[in-house]
Amino acid sequence: MALIGNSDLDVFRLNLGGNPFGWTADEQTSFAILDTFAEAGANFVDTSDSYTASAPGNSGGESETIIGKWLTDRGLHEDIVVATKVSRHPDFPGLKAENIAAAAEASLRRLQTDHIDLYYAHFDDPDTPLEETLGAFDSLVTAGKVRYLGISNYTPDRIREWLRIVDDNGYARPVALQPHYNLVHRNSYEPELASIATENNLGVFPYFALASGFLTGKYRTRADLEGSPRARLTGGYFNDAGLAVVTELSKIADAHDSEPATVALAWLLTRPGVTAPIASVSRAEQLPAVLDAPNLVLSSDELDRLDHVSAAVQA
């Protein structure tokens, strides 16, 4: 377990991604995943109000709705830490003050709760003054509707501006950062965001921690991807450098009688600032590989090998 930044949120060191819920996992399957996750002693679920609006027949909020039903049905609202996000729901795009307020109310209804544990700005909104956005977030914290705030998909300069504005105005400081970061996509976090996170005690929760399944070793050829809903997301990793990372992961996993996914997540847990990687599964039987990551200790030689092969990847 680990505290998120300067908050009192004590979370398991694997953050369950809720994006498959209502997309590649129906409600029954999602409940089975969440049950297995909680039974293992894990307690941190990540979602967004926009998950998964892009799926056929969806309109956004499906993941939050399923999580809310599960929390209420199982009586676990006080035991599970839930993070969600704002700015990309089709009905609530952007980060204007009135939009944030309305989107938060909609998320609270779907999650069937009176407060959001961790509320992220999902993507920057260059058309709205940052002062307006941060004032709206602070109002939610002051009202008790949000406990803590997080930042996702912002540039280093914009994060520095965010921190300056909240300090100048006495607003609630962010406690979390959610960047795109994994063994085949390192440059957007290293080194600048990593420095900002460690200097400001921001808990870091990398998304696409398994590169949309590529780092599980499941996909070794493009033919393996045919018919997969993740084909669009993983296709760019199929090159010699990307496959070399998967090969090294598999070698290390075999040495530990483990899985490539476990090794990939364990590597992330050694990186500066990282509190818990975000990993998603579409079936409950896929969970053990990700839940084992916090317990897997990689040797310095193994970490060096992974650093070496991943440094060659440009993604």
Rank of each mutant, 00 (worst) to 15 (best):
residue 79 D to E: 13
residue 151 I to V: 14
residue 76 L to M: 15
residue 133 T to F: 05
residue 84 T to A: 08
residue 87 S to P: 09
residue 12 F to L: 01
residue 234 T to Q: 03
residue 216 T to H: 08
residue 46 D to P: 01
residue 180 H to E: 11
residue 278 I to Q: 03
residue 184 V to N: 05
residue 229 P to R: 01
residue 247 T to W: 00
residue 14 L to K: 00
residue 284 A to P: 13
residue 155 T to S: 15
residue 143 A to Q: 10
residue 194 A to Q: 09
residue 192 E to H: 02
residue 92 F to A: 11
residue 174 P to F: 14
residue 305 R to W: 02
residue 205 F to I: 00
residue 26 D to K: 09
residue 155 T to D: 09
residue 229 P to N: 04
residue 153 N to G: 06
residue 274 V to N: 13
residue 44 F to G: 05
residue 167 D to P: 00
residue 104 A to D: 02
residue 108 L to F: 09
residue 253 A to E: 01
residue 129 P to E: 02
residue 106 A to W: 00
residue 51 Y to C: 14
residue 288 P to C: 12
residue 107 S to F: 10
residue 181 Y to A: 07
residue 183 L to F: 07
residue 169 N to A: 03
residue 171 Y to L: 15
residue 112 Q to W: 01
residue 276 A to W: 01
residue 28 Q to C: 06
residue 43 N to S: 09
residue 111 L to Y: 07
residue 220 R to D: 08
residue 79 D to C: 05
residue 224 D to F: 09
residue 84 T to Q: 06
residue 276 A to L: 05
residue 154 Y to Q: 14
residue 283 R to V: 02
residue 264 A to W: 10
residue 261 A to M: 06
residue 302 E to P: 04
residue 58 N to G: 11
residue 286 Q to I: 08
residue 233 L to R: 12
residue 65 T to E: 13
residue 178 Q to D: 04
residue 30 S to G: 03
residue 48 S to R: 05
residue 205 F to P: 00
residue 145 K to R: 15
residue 144 G to P: 01
residue 293 A to C: 08
residue 163 L to R: 02
residue 174 P to I: 11
residue 229 P to D: 03
residue 55 A to R: 12
residue 300 S to D: 15
residue 112 Q to D: 15
residue 221 T to L: 10
residue 312 A to M: 02
residue 84 T to C: 07
residue 311 A to V: 03
residue 279 A to S: 15
residue 154 Y to D: 10
residue 304 D to Q: 06
residue 127 D to N: 11
residue 268 L to T: 04
residue 173 R to Q: 05
residue 256 H to A: 05
residue 191 P to I: 00
residue 14 L to I: 12
residue 55 A to M: 01
residue 273 G to Q: 05
residue 301 D to P: 04
residue 98 E to N: 13
residue 117 D to L: 09
residue 301 D to L: 10
residue 218 K to D: 01
residue 235 G to V: 08
residue 207 Y to W: 15
residue 73 D to R: 13
residue 293 A to T: 09
residue 152 S to Y: 02
residue 126 P to M: 02
residue 169 N to F: 05
residue 206 P to C: 02
residue 185 H to E: 15
residue 220 R to H: 13
residue 302 E to L: 03
residue 300 S to K: 12
residue 257 D to I: 03
residue 11 V to T: 04
residue 144 G to D: 08
residue 45 V to I: 15
residue 145 K to Q: 11
residue 49 D to P: 06
residue 79 D to W: 03
residue 31 F to D: 12
residue 256 H to Y: 06
residue 206 P to L: 01
residue 239 N to E: 00
residue 34 L to T: 06
residue 191 P to W: 00
residue 140 L to H: 08
residue 263 V to R: 11
residue 315 A to F: 07
residue 39 E to N: 14
residue 165 I to V: 15
residue 238 F to S: 07
residue 24 T to V: 12
residue 54 S to I: 07
residue 170 G to M: 04
residue 13 R to L: 01
residue 95 L to R: 11
residue 87 S to K: 02
residue 124 D to G: 06
residue 78 E to N: 14
residue 306 L to H: 09
residue 172 A to W: 04
residue 284 A to D: 14
residue 201 N to E: 13
residue 227 G to F: 03
residue 66 I to N: 08
